Computed example of a mutant assay.
Amino acid sequence: MSTVAASVDVEVPVRTAYDQWTQFETFPQFMLGVEAVDQLDDKHTHWRIHVGPSIREFDATITEQHPDERVAWKSDNGPNHAGVITFHRLDDTHTRITAQMEVDPEGFVESAADKLGVLKHRVNGDMRRFKHFIEGRPHETGAWRGDIPRPDA
């Protein structure tokens, strides 16, 4: 497993940043390689992504979600990965968003890309694109304010 972490400071209140992040269907607008994300219910998403020349689909479960604080997930099938996005209020109009992911590359191409730092570069780019995405709008495109408690260990 490889661990990737990236942060970005955005010029919006923490609630705005968090609310936009809960709109998974907008991810293709700022995440390279993400073709579509469908929210199946409060805890489940279905993803279609490009990995090199291939298209992969997988399901993921939101394992913990607390408004204005964090969204954590794990894959249910397909590429083995898990992660958490945390939101930190810097002041009334600035938020730090941090992404931490663990990814288990599959096959030669993904392993080589991992060793070359492609995933870290991609995540950093996605965070910068999210910054431009959210700062370039008058308000978030939607929100989900539900709470999903961490599962018992």
Rank of each mutant, 00 (worst) to 15 (best):
V4H: 10
V4Q: 10
A6S: 08
A6F: 01
D9Y: 07
E11Y: 03
P13N: 07
R15N: 11
Y18S: 02
D19P: 03
D19Y: 09
D19N: 15
Q20H: 01
T22F: 04
P28I: 04
P28H: 02
F30K: 06
M31C: 08
E35Q: 14
A36L: 05
Q39Y: 09
Q39I: 12
Q39S: 13
L40K: 13
T45R: 03
R48N: 06
V51F: 03
V51G: 03
G52M: 05
Q65K: 15
H66E: 13
R70F: 07
V71W: 01
W73L: 05
S75T: 13
H81M: 13
T86F: 10
R89H: 12
R89S: 08
D91M: 09
D91R: 11
D92I: 01
T98K: 04
T98G: 10
Q100D: 13
D104H: 12
P105Q: 03
E106A: 14
E106L: 05
G107D: 06
F108V: 13
V109K: 11
V109A: 14
A112Y: 09
V118R: 07
K120D: 13
R122E: 12
V123L: 07
G125D: 12
H132Q: 12
F133T: 00
I134C: 02
E135V: 05
E135C: 03
E135Q: 11
G136N: 06
P138A: 12
P138D: 15
G142I: 00
W144L: 11
W144G: 04
I148L: 06
R150L: 11
D152T: 15
A153G: 14
